[in-house]
Structure formats: C-alpha cells, structure tokens
Design a protein around this nucleic acid. Structure first.
Length: 816
RNA sequence: GCCGCUGUGGUGGAAUGGUAUACACGCUCGAUUCAAAAUCGAGUUCGAAAGAAUGUCGGUUCGAGUCCGACCAGCGGUACCA
C-alpha cells in the first residue's frame, strides 16, 4: 500500500479528537504522570523550536499512556505581552484579536502535528478567568507583605515613554527604537522574592539529579549568596556638622574583612541618601551636583566604561585604627547591592585600585603572597599572609577573616552578614496588554486592595494604542472607580503585571478539572495528585527567570496554604536550539524552516522522526533537508514492509529454538530495541539511539522471511515507535493488531540466549583478532584459543599476564 | 574576568573503563527503467602497505573517546555584586 501522510494523519487526528483519547482520567487512584512543555507565546506560527519541544513532551506522554499511567499533558498560551501591542502599533489590529487569532491558528498546528494534548484543559493566560484567579493571588500576597510598592530607579525610554525591563535594554538602548535609555525614579510594585532567597538556594539540592547541573549552577550564581562582615563607618565631628547632624555614618559590607587595615577611602553610590541630602542642602557646588546627576542617569553600560567619582569633603574614622578616611562618590558603587556603600582597599581589589590610581589616592598593602613578593603595579586580590594589621599580622587570610569578624562582634561594632545578588522582582509595567494590578488609589485610604468578589478587573477593549505612554492611563473612564474601602471616588492602578507572573503558576491551573474552572483556581486534592510535574521540558533560555519565579510562587502558595510541597518540577529537560547553517533559526537571518511546509510535503510523522533522530534532545539540532528526506524514507519503508505481517489480536507465540540463525537474530534485534526504548524513556532521553535500535531491528527483519517473526516484530516495533511517529503506528496497529499492541510490552529473555559468543583478542591492549567460542568454554581453553589466533604477535615475546573479561575479550600482556 | 558546556569519519551522531566510528545522511558502483525519479543491493575513517587516528600534551590502568591534571578552540550564561 502506498504511504500517504495526509490520509493517514488526518484520519487518526480526527479519531483521537472524537474519542477524547488524550483527556486525563479523574480517577485519582491510578498512578499518574504529569508531562509538561513550556507553553508558547502566541506569536502567530509555531517555529521548529516549538515543534522540538512538543515532540519531546508528546513522546513522553504517549509512552506513559502505553505503560498504563494516567497522563496529564496539557498546553496553553502565555498570551499577554508586548508583541501584541507592537503588532497593534504596526498594523492597527487590536491586541486581543491579534492574540486570539494567533491562538486559533496555532491550535490547528498542534492538531496537524499529532500532539496528544488535552483539548479540554487548553487555556490562555489572557482569559478573564485566568486573570481573575491571578488577581486573587496578588491580593493574598499583598496581604502577606510579599508584594509592595516603592520608588526605584528604572530603565526609561525617552522616545517610547515607558519603563523597560532589564532584558529589554540591549547595549544600553531601547530594544524597539534604539534610543539610549536613561534611569528614572518611579513607583513600581515588587515581589519580595529576596525573602525566599535562602530557601530558593538551599532547595536546589532537592533538584539534584532531576535538573541539569548547568541550570542549578546558573540559579545558584543568580541568587549569588556571599558571606562577609558588615559594619558602620562613623563620621568625624566636622563631617557630621556638614550633614546638619542628620547622619552619624553609614553601613558597609565586605567579603574580605582580612583586608580591613588596608582601607584608605570609602565610596558611596551616586543614589545614596547621604548624597541626596548633600545635593538638596547646599553641601555641594553646582558642578558636583551636575556630575552626580549625570552618573545617576547614565545607563549601566556607560557606567561600566570608565570609573569616575568625586570627593565629598567628608571623612569617617577607621573602626579599628581611628585613622581619618576620605569619602567619595563613585559610579562603580551600586545602590541596589549591599548598602550602596563600600570600604575601599585599593591594594587588594581591582576596582578600588583603578579608582585610586585615577584620583591619586593612598594605597596601603596589608596582605602578601605566601611565597613571593607583592607587585605594587597591580592589586593583589588573592589570599595570603597579613602584615601591618595589628594583632592579626602573620595570620593567613582565612584565619584572619574569622578572627576579625569575631573581634567586630565582640566589640559590638559590626556583624557577620550574608548578602544576595538576587533582587526583588519588579512586576509593574506601564502597558495595556497585561493583567491589571488589582489595586485602587484612594485620596483618603491610600493604596487599597480590590475586593475579591469584584475580580476580575478586566481590561477595557475600547483603547487606542499609539506606543506612547500607557493606554490604560489615557482611557477616558476605565481608571475611575469607587474606593472599595470608603466608597469615595478613587482611581485604579493602571500598571499591569509582568507576564512572568502568569507563567509562574499556570502548571497548577492545569491540574484543575475544567468542570470546576469557574469556581476555583484549583483544588488542593487535584494539586496533590498531579504535582509535581514529572517531566518539564523547555528551552535553556528559561533557566533562570521563569524557573526561579515558578519556584518562588510554589513556595509562596505553600505558605499561603494552597499546597504542601516545596518544588514544582521534579525533572527538567532543557532542549538545545534548532540551527540551520550553523546559526539559530531566526526571521532576521532568513534561515527558518516553516513546520507547516514540512508537514505539507512529508507529514507530521517525518518531522517528528527527524527531530528526535538527528540529535539527543539537550544538544543543538542542525536542520538538514536530506536527513529529513531520510526520515521520510524510513517511514515509507516501515509502512510498506508491513505487507509481511498477518492479522492477530495477541502477540504471535514463537518457538525460538526452531528458528534459523537470521530469524533468531531478527528477534534479538527487536527485543534489544524494546529494552533500549524503556531505558531511553525512563532515564537517558536519547531518542536518537532508540530510533537507531528500531532501524537495526528493521534491517534484521529484512534478512529473513518468517511471517511469525515479522508479525511479532511489528507488534513490538509499532508499539515502540508510536510515541515518535504516532499516525503511522496507529494505522498499522489498527490494520493488523486491532490497536491491542499499543500497551506495555513484555521482554522475552529467551531471545538473548546464545550458543556461542565472539571475543576480541588483544595484545598489550591492541585488538588483533576475534575468536568464536561456545558459551560454556572453560577459561583455560579460551586463553589457548586466543593465543593461537594472535600467534603472529606473540612470536619471540614472553606473556607476562593474561586477562579474560567474560563475554568481552582476552588481553595478553607481553614483553619482548 | 568568573561560571558552565562541547571538541569522534565528508556530515548529524553511536560507544555501563573492555573489539572506536552503531544508526542515518552524503558519495561511489550495480540492478530495475527507453530514460529519469522512486525503489532494491553492494561499498565507503585515513593510508598503496606497514600502520595511524576520538582538539593538544602529560598521568592512572593489563586496557582510556570515557577517569585525573595542564592547555587550546568553539558555544552559552553572567558580570564594577564590594
């Protein structure tokens, strides 16, 4: 029969839909598997990265269904976000229409690829029902003090009139219009993720083994825990007077307390409150003020280009020596790390050194290498031996660090402190297409939460999107409301939430039974059954932000009483990128391959087979047209050779000992493929080797013509391949096996029994010959056969050692 | 700079410390065909051979692509984090 991908694929896609084949059961006594792909943004069309992602999760889902598990394999759309607004600006389409049109199209693509997603649990995060529950959680978090509002210096694009996230700033410019961004002091909502910093770090150990090491390391570095000493530097009397008595001193943090005797100046971030005070109270001249303003507004890229600063005319006293230390304002000091102020030890820190050289500040070395001499041309930043450090002189750095912290604590002038690079998560965006933050500003009551029964606070549809400013702010009526507390006139918050908020809990929403979707976000019972996600599959680009935020939400929900576990994703599989001509597929490079075109030409099964066969999932995948052709040929051959198979409702029973050598070999290859398949799904995820095993089995079946062996072979192979090329396999299975073989397959040990084995013979580790011996051959005889086979290499040599590795090889060690 | 990953035929890639190059692509030859496509079959690491080869150099071992150390190259993450 001629293979037609279109006929076969359409038939089975309709069958699956009609029979609700992929809906999870509500029977919670069954063993479950929760297989999840990272859901897509509805950009319009699927790209090959998506196809790779969903082919992987689909294979897992189908495999576990065959093994008898209750499988949840849902999909949705991460459908809020800037691109919908950008499309509106460009084509005048409404963001909502643009988004939902794209979703409809992409759903049809899912169907044509044969992905076994649950239809009934499909959702989009821009659905009002989703917004409703999300706003409820935001209110919960605000009540718990995990969401707060404060002023911060944010990235601002002067041309687009909007705040930009850090990741939307590219080389110091706006990602859309290239304008140099500036910093603007604005109100912003923040999640207090730092409160969970320690747990987010320590729980990484629970993920070891299940998550790639690389991702764990990236998260660890991102959280960036460091231990050290924090202490106050106090102003002298003259400086206090200059500051109108408002400040006694300021706090600094160091990870190198062992260098404390080398402190020769201290520096404040341009945004530091002491500097603001000086600027506002005539403590600085006009030139200095404009210089500081310049530092404050320059982008972080600019600030990294060259160190600059200015002396403030203030002095503090060294906490141990009492020596006077000058205070500078320096652009390399960051306000949002530590306390925004540092002690500077130019002799032992590269940055402090560079700054001291530029402004001709004192450099006092206090640590020298254990062996060798100090080089005064550079900072010595490694550990070493202390000198000129009072009673700590002569100690090594490590010892001195502990002792100096002890000393500070005993004298009550400082304490051991831990700092994190992790910052609180700024979540407000001055944008239309996002979930509104459910708060109200009331003249009398201040910032007030919306009442839960009024949720969702939905977006208005009659808006004008120009790309300038926040459309919600400009809408004539939307923001005007009554205060939920006092009932007086008030205004709604017009900021919307970062889209990372939606993706931080969607995996929980999928656990909810759709029949209760209106009533609740999810129930505890459903969550406890389905979570954690057994296999979470997606791109490495989400290694930090999305996965960190989802972990954070899980812990918050636990503390709110919604669930009872600590981590959402048991196993994480990060797929590699899809490349063409050695570069990532992208529209701008013009090297994309459209999935629809591949399906049209070869069918979904070919696309799926190629993607899984061409490389292991974690590696980059190089697109190759002729290899796609090869995958297509295999499917055609697989379909065609089914003419050797007869109809049966149970697996054919075969008397193994009665078979010919070729027939035995074919059976062995078939069952080897089965063993490998189980290995791959449960542990190794190297689908390419599983498929290679099936190809070997096919090649072996081809060398014989026993119809029992063919039929048994197809019974097994079409079961193994069903998760990869489902349409063809369902077709074969229905024609010959009444779909009875798409289940767990038993391994038959008898096919692995052999009468003889082939051993390699090596001399000094170099393989020189092969011998075939009967299974029960005694070791002595094996050795003498081996010697015979390599006589040529033993000539004139003395054998000093004989090593026999059972079933593998014989190694003879000789000396000549 | 720091952290991580990857280096195997012409190409994608196989190989629990035990016969390197499975499987596939490509290429070559042959069958089929009036011819081509499709299909089927054979061959294909390099080298005429001895022999050599898993980025380079060392080490551990009877035996190393695999383990250890140093380096080189490519890719990715991150970065004035005190």
């Amino acid at each position: 029969m001629e293979y037609s991908s279109k006929t076969v694929e359409r038939e089975w896609q309709d069958y699956w839909l009609k029979n609700r084949s992929f809906e999870p059961s509500e029977d919670f006594t069954k063993e479950k598997k929760y297989i999840l792909s990272m859901f897509p943004f509805p950009s319009g069309r699927l790209h090959m990265g998506h196809v790779r992602n969903y082919t992987l999760s689909d294979s897992f889902a189908r495999y576990y269904r065959q093994q008898g598990f209750n499988v949840l394999h849902p999909i949705g759309f991460d459908s809020f976000g800037m691109p919908a607004e950008n499309a509106a600006i460009k084509n005048g389409s409404h963001p909502k229409k643009w988004t939902y049109d794209n979703i409809d199209y992409m759903k049809s693509e899912f169907k044509s690829l044969g992905f076994s997603f649950s239809k009934e649990r499909e959702l989009a995060t821009s659905d009002e029902l989703y917004t409703k529950f999300e706003q409820g959680f935001i209110i919960d978090m605000f009540e718990k003090g995990l969401l707060y509002r404060k002023k911060g210096f944010l990235n601002w694009c002067p041309s687009c009139h909007t705040v930009l996230a850090n990741e939307q700033v590219i080389d110091g410019g706006c990602w859309r219009c290239d304008t140099q961004i500036t910093k603007k002091d604005m109100n912003q909502y923040y999640f207090k993720i730092t409160q969970y910093g320690d747990e987010l770090l320590s729980d990484l150990s629970k993920l070891e083994g299940g998550w790639p090491k690389q991702v764990l390391t990236m998260q660890e570095n991102w959280i960036g825990k460091s231990n050290g000493l924090s202490f106050d530097l106090f102003f002298d009397e003259a400086s206090k007077a200059k500051l109108d008595g408002k400040f006694d001193g300021f706090d600094v943090f160091t990870t190198r307390p062992d260098t404390i005797y080398g402190v020769s100046y201290a520096a404040l971030a341009p945004e530091h409150p002491i500097i603001s005070h000086l600027m506002e109270n005539a403590g600085l001249d006009a030139d200095a003020i404009s210089e500081i303003k310049e530092m404050r507004s320059s982008s972080s890229i600019d600030r990294q280009k060259e160190k600059s600063g200015l002396a403030l005319g203030l002095e503090v006293l060294h906490p141990l020596t009492g020596k006077k230390i000058p205070i500078w304002c320096a652009n390399f000091v960051l306000m949002d790390y530590g306390s925004g102020a540092v002690m500077a030890v130019p002799a032992h820190d590269d940055r402090d050194f560079e700054f001291a050289k530029k402004y001709d500040l004192e450099i006092c070395p206090v640590i020298k290498p254990f062996n060798g001499k100090l080089n005064s041309e550079i900072a010595f930043t490694e550990v070493g031996e202390l000198f000129d450090s009072a009673e700590f002189s002569g100690m090594n750095s490590k010892e001195a660090q502990a002792k100096i912290i002890e000393h500070f604590e005993a004298e009550k002038i400082g304490k051991k402190t831990t700092n994190y690079k992790l910052k609180d998560w700024g979540v407000s965006r001055q944008r239309y297409w996002g979930a509104p933050i459910p708060f109200v500003h009331c003249h009398d009551c201040g910032l007030v939460m919306e009442k839960k029964e009024n949720l969702p606070i939905a977006l208005p549809e009659d808006i004008v999107i120009t790309g300038e400013g926040n459309p919600l702010e400009k809408h004539p009526s939307w923001k005007h409301c009554k205060c939920p507390q006092c009932g007086e006139d008030a205004t709604r918050e017009t900021d919307t939430m970062d889209t990372f908020v939606e993706s931080s809990w969607y995996f929980l929403r999928f656990c909810a039974s759709p029949k209760n979707w209106e009533k609740e976000a999810f129930s505890k019972e459903q969550i406890e059954y389905w979570m954690g996600v057994d296999h979470y599959i997606g791109g490495i680009e989400h290694a930090i932000l999305h996965l960190l935020y989802a972990r954070f939400f899980t812990k918050v929900f636990r503390d709110l009483g919604y669930l009872e576990f600590d981590e959402p994703f048991d196993k994480l599989l990060t797929q590699g990128m899809v490349l063409k001509d050695g570069a990532k597929m992208s529209k701008s490079k013009g090297n994309t391959v459209d999935p629809d075109a591949i399906i049209e030409k070869y069918g979904a099964d070919t696309a799926r087979l190629f993607i899984l066969f061409a490389a292991p999932p974690t590696q980059e995948l190089e697109w190759n047209d002729s290899a796609v052709e090869g995958a297509f040929k295999f499917i055609k051959r697989f379909y065609d050779r089914s003419s050797n198979v007869y109809k049966c409702n149970t697996i054919p029973q075969i008397e193994h000992s009665s078979l010919s050598k070729e027939e035995k070999f074919a059976r062995k290859k078939v069952y080897e493929a089965l063993v490998r398949a189980n290995d791959v799904y449960r542990e190794k995820y190297t689908f390419n080797t599983m498929i290679a095993g099936v190809m070997e089995a096919m090649n072996a079946l081809n060398t014989q013509n026993n119809s029992d062996v063919w039929s048994e072979g197809y019974w097994i192979l079409s079961s193994i391949m069903e998760p990869v090329i489902p349409h063809v396999c369902w077709d074969i299975s229905s024609r010959f096996f009444s779909l009875k073989n798409l289940t767990k397959q038993e391994i038959r040990d008898e096919v692995f029994m052999q009468d003889s084995i082939i051993l390699g013979v090596s001399v000094n580790g170099k393989v020189r010959a092969e011998i075939e011996v009967a299974l029960d051959t005694a070791q002595g005889e094996i050795v003498s056969l081996a010697k015979e086979s390599v006589a040529k290499w033993l000539d004139g040599q003395t054998i000093v050692k004989e090593i026999v590795v059972p079933n593998r090889l014989v190694n003879l060690v000789v000396k000549g």
